[in-house]
Write a protein that binds this DNA or RNA. Sequence first.
RNA 1: GGGGACGUAGUUCAGUUGGUUAGAACGCUGCCCUGUCACGGCAGAGGUCGCGAGUUCGAGUCUCGUCGUCCCCGCCA
Length: 592
Amino acid sequence: MCGELRAQNAGEQVVLMGWVNRRRDLGSLIFIDLRDRTGTTQLVFDHSANPALHDKAGSLRSEFVVAAIGKVRRRDEETINRNIATGEVEVAISELRLLNESRLPPFLPSETGPLNEEVRLKYRYIDLRREQMQFNIELRHKVALAIRQYLSSQGFLEIETPFMTRSTPEGARDYLVPSRVHPGSFYALPQSPQLFKQILMISGFDKYFQIVRCFRDEDLRADRQPEFTQIDLEMTFPQPDRVYEVVEGFLKAAFKAAGHELKTPFPRMTYDEAIRQYGIDKPDLRLPKMAGIRAAFTEEDLTALNIDGSMNMVAIRIPKVGKLSDREKKELRTLAEDIAKRNKDFVGVFYDFVQLEKKRPETAAKIRELCSAEADDLIVPVVGIAGKSFSEKNKRAQYIAAGEGRLELARKYADRHDAFKRTGDPDKDFKWLWVTDFPMFEYDDKENRWSAAHHPFTSPHERDMDKLESDPGAVRALAYDVVLNGTELGSGSIRIHRQDIQKKIFHALGMTEEEARSRFGFFLEALEYGTPPHGGIALGLDRIAMILAGADSLREVIPFPKTAKAIDMMVDAPTPVNEAQLKELGIQVRKQ
RNA sequence: GGGGACGUAGUUCAGUUGGUUAGAACGCUGCCCUGUCACGGCAGAGGUCGCGAGUUCGAGUCUCGUCGUCCCCGCCA
């Protein structure tokens, strides 16, 4: 292959096939860099050695596909190219065959400059020839392979589940597939194989996994595609610890395949701690947590600064930001006002800490101490404003507001604190975390009811069982997330295996017996036939690959991704279909 | 659904206060070149300024609409 020849291959007769990456025509001497997936090798055509062959080489253009036969030879010391792996050798060609020509592509795979994503996606087959994309796709393969091998070695069976299944109204919007045989009826593409894997547990396949495509018809983000790949697994008789162990095991194997040694076990934190210390359920541990600063304020401070002493008081600290320019101060003020506004102005943000230091030097000094702040760190205290009345919900909202501010500031000053920069040390580059004890329910303000925070098959904490009716908001779930650098990589839980508890949960969700039966009847019935305790998790393979590739978007690790409007630019999907097709499916399209 | 950024040559971009013939780099074509490797030199081709209205004597530039791409909020159990 084009990337494999080394000095010790000198003298060998070789056949290379690949694409013309670059040509350097020096007149009676032509160099061609021939490229395949493994790299490039320099081919040499010398007019004095073979005029006809040299002329043939002169007609080659970028991305032509050729086969070349020749002898590997060591380069002279002064012509060695230290920048590439094959730089010590070149191939003196004796026979050249043009396998295919190429139109001039809209961009060249060998170009390194920035490229509009629209062009890249339209000509994805060209884009994928670029070294970075070849690397990313191979990386993804290696990661998936390592995970398969690890899980298989641990006794997990990879079992496929249907793509054409039943629509369930819970959760994300479904992609629907019309049935020709049953006009007016639809299959749904799975949002995840959740119920099937639980059924497999009931069926006695005690350790299941699947690297599987999932589909959700929701709006996209840089880290969200309508179809994405999950590493889905489930096992019988597990404690959460057993799930953590398995996940840590395969992540370790996956990261090793990508060249990084991870330390396990990962740290853990309850949901409650995460909210209080980071204001978010997926903390990025590369940045300092928010410090409680109540102790810094005297009663007199509170009155003078119009602060409610019973509210949370935390300080955001962003390291090494240094002095702010006037413009940055103004931006910080705008950010603070946005945060306050989003929280109906019960949150107060000290956007000008320097001012506070002037007005209240002692208090400010104590805040610095409580944050363990260095002199050039940016400190932004977030407090509750006096005279407002606060609920528990307000308190949590305040932490979340501070957490949002923390992330926004961290992103803004990323080039100063360097916390997001790779160091090469996996302990610093990859900050892992298990977030545990999520709340079982969230209150849906729009629909005025409780909804499942994870999904309705999640088991509540044994201790909180009695609060299901009386205080649903306080019920904790045996649910956990695995978080890497502030990105949620996976989410799982111990499931309910008893029908009576499952019924209670549906009841707490405001679902009647009939509703539950009509939606999940088959599943409730299955629960009645000797269901073992079981639990599992699902992780986003695309996100793992994205982080390992150092990319900012899933599109960099998915060969054929969709745009923010869920369009495939290469094949131009989706499209309308003809009337006959619709008729056969019994579908009529409503005109807008 | 909402907010923001962008759209000019094949590609990446510049284009001043609205002014006469819209530029650069890379790529492309031709010629020259025997040690290049992002080869070099000379010459050349290449434009519906996303699209549609409007303001104006005059629009790449201003206004409105529309389409597309990206980012964020909502949404995503």
